[in-house]
Design a binder for these strands. Structure first.
Lengths: 341, 341
DNA sequence: TTGTAGGCGTTATCAA
DNA sequence: TTGATAACGCCTACAA
């Protein structure tokens, strides 16, 4: 790091050898005398030699770095994905540069460009809530940059995408609410351009249709994905003449925001109204929130594996990999019959 | 990334110039004809030229990378510190390699060594719960590696350390409990080798002494810092003949673990027993947990600034910077008189 | 104002 | 088995 580094050149001169020989000894090539290898290794240790990977990288035209761009890493979700990624790539000698776009598409763009400048060998991306940078990713793909999208994806792109079946699990969630006896089910949806928002909304609509429940437009509102956006949803729903008896929120933060906001108004979940989330969070768990848990670590691991595969050989078929999830039923969606009304 | 990169050499030949001239144009040196600069820049754009920073780094013997090692980044605390760090270093053209040791000192060591191999220019570290790698950090400091410790520090080292006054704020917390009328205050301490554990325990002892409350050894137990470690503390405290009426936990996760564990036993916080945490977490806030909030982003920013200063000139005086914090009183430590007994 | 040439620390291809 | 040498892409004296 800071202290002047010793190079193979110094080892060579202090041993009266050529740098080529030293290099060979260090890379334990077979074409070297065992005795000289021993001397070189000893000297290297003595001089605390550390190879300069920058030089090596320059020569090999790589740097063993990948970039990760996520909307945020304050809550558990993306951190867990990142850990899954690191597990895989570190083992292969890769380091990850991790950026968060703070849900801003312009910062997302800056991050990607920074990572390009750093010459990372590939990218794993989860896009921001407004999905504004399609042109950027189209360029990267056209330039044959290895790239994998996770969770928040851009289905229109020809790229590896790692997701769960949001539509199916949203369906199951709403189906669960219906079977619990709820009839007026509202949906607080996420940002309309976000893949997961669209899918989950679709799942909600599917379920209502399947169970012959008329769709009520006024029960659907796009609020966003961040907890502080829940208030506007509650504000809206709670002044409808006909109020919902259950809310399916696009994710746990919104669901939690709802519960807190309802609490402020003296309303109890699930006594007065049921609430369901998505992408189970630790807070939600503590609050007894029914939710869908995603295999976060696995998402990360598989994304990393796909990316390494692309780096090795870009000409592999790009695919959307759909992982399994799980519906976890808790108190926030107690069946009507058990709510003690 | 993947597609063959264009180099200054190609720009030079396609323009009939020497690479030196091209280089000068690109780095807008003053000693160049405005017209040739224009031509070069145009050509560079046309050929989508991107400088190879590896080559540049090799030449300048730096790589504009720093390393960050934290015990975990699943909860909000370290992520916020990391964001603070990135804010500062990104602005200066640095990238951060972020590693988490998962509270394992051997992984911490591996991480640091990986970062050394990556030739980062400096490190920002928060050590794992058992603080086992002092020898490692002594070596780094002896080799004059720029390094800054945050939050979980090693006071015995001659290095920049960014902290809050854990002892003082623990004192204030316990003082608050005393003033609320609590008399049997237990402390669930963190791992005994951890700087923050020691300081907070000391603050607890200080407060009892100041208010002439006899210290009861059986009210102090080292449980650790992770939520699942709280159970053992409650198990222990709840079988004492004389039970505590308040618990000061080393941090929010332990406090939250306590509340959940107490809840399981049908005990209510604060009705039956008060609980206080430390390093305010979002979950704690929702659970109305009294806690001390730390200026996480600021910790990160200041750590980054100190590190950059060290990188610029290692011979600056190393110091311990103590930032301010805040005691946030909530329902979990309601005054005895208001608990409605 | 521009070109030539040397070097950053390695690896790899030749000869020796 | 070893040594000289040419890259890798860029910057920067120095010379022209």
């Amino acid at each position: 790091m800071s202290s002047p580094k010793t190079t193979i050149k110094e080892i060579a001169s202090s041993l009266g050898l050529s740098i080529a020989t030293v290099s060979r000894a260090l890379n334990d090539s077979c074409e070297i005398h065992p005795e000289t290898r021993r001397r070189v290794l000893a000297k290297a240790q003595e001089l605390r030699y550390k190879p300069n990977i920058q030089a090596r990288n320059l020569l090999k035209r790589r740097n063993n770095m990948i970039g990760i761009v996520v909307p945020e890493f304050i809550t558990f979700f993306f951190p867990e994905i990142i850990i899954g990624i690191q597990e895989v790539v570190n083992k292969q000698g890769y380091q990850a540069l991790i950026c968060q776009s703070n849900e801003s598409s312009s910062l997302e763009r800056k991050n990607v460009e920074m990572l390009e400048d750093s010459m990372v060998e590939g990218l794993i991306v989860s896009v921001t809530k407004d999905s504004q940078n399609i042109d950027l990713y189209e360029r990267l793909i056209q330039e044959r940059t290895p790239i994998v999208f996770v969770n928040r994806v851009l289905p229109q792109l020809q790229a590896d995408q790692i997701v769960i079946d949001d539509r199916k699990w949203a369906f199951k969630m709403v189906e669960h609410l219906i079977k619990c006896g709820y009839k007026q089910i509202a949906h607080l949806a996420g940002n309309p351009d976000l893949s997961v928002s669209k899918e989950r909304l679709q799942g909600y609509l599917d379920a209502l249709a399947t169970y012959n429940i008329p769709i009520q437009e006024q029960f659907i509102m796009h609020v966003g994905v961040q907890q502080d956006r829940a208030k506007s949803g509650i504000d809206y729903l709670m002044v409808l003449k006909e109020k919902p008896d259950a809310i399916f929120a696009v994710n746990d933060p919104i669901a939690i925001g709802c519960i807190l906001e309802l609490r402020k108004r003296g309303l109890n979940v699930p006594k007065d109204i049921a609430v369901a989330g998505f992408s189970e969070s630790p807070i939600g768990k503590i609050m007894e929130l029914t939710s869908v848990s995603q295999p976060t670590f696995e998402i990360g691991r598989i994304a990393a594996e796909r990316l390494l595969k692309q780096i090795e050989n870009y000409n592999t078929l790009k695919e959307t990999i759909v992982l399994d999830a799980k519906l976890n039923i808790r108190n926030s969606t107690l069946p009507q019959s058990k709510r003690g009304h």
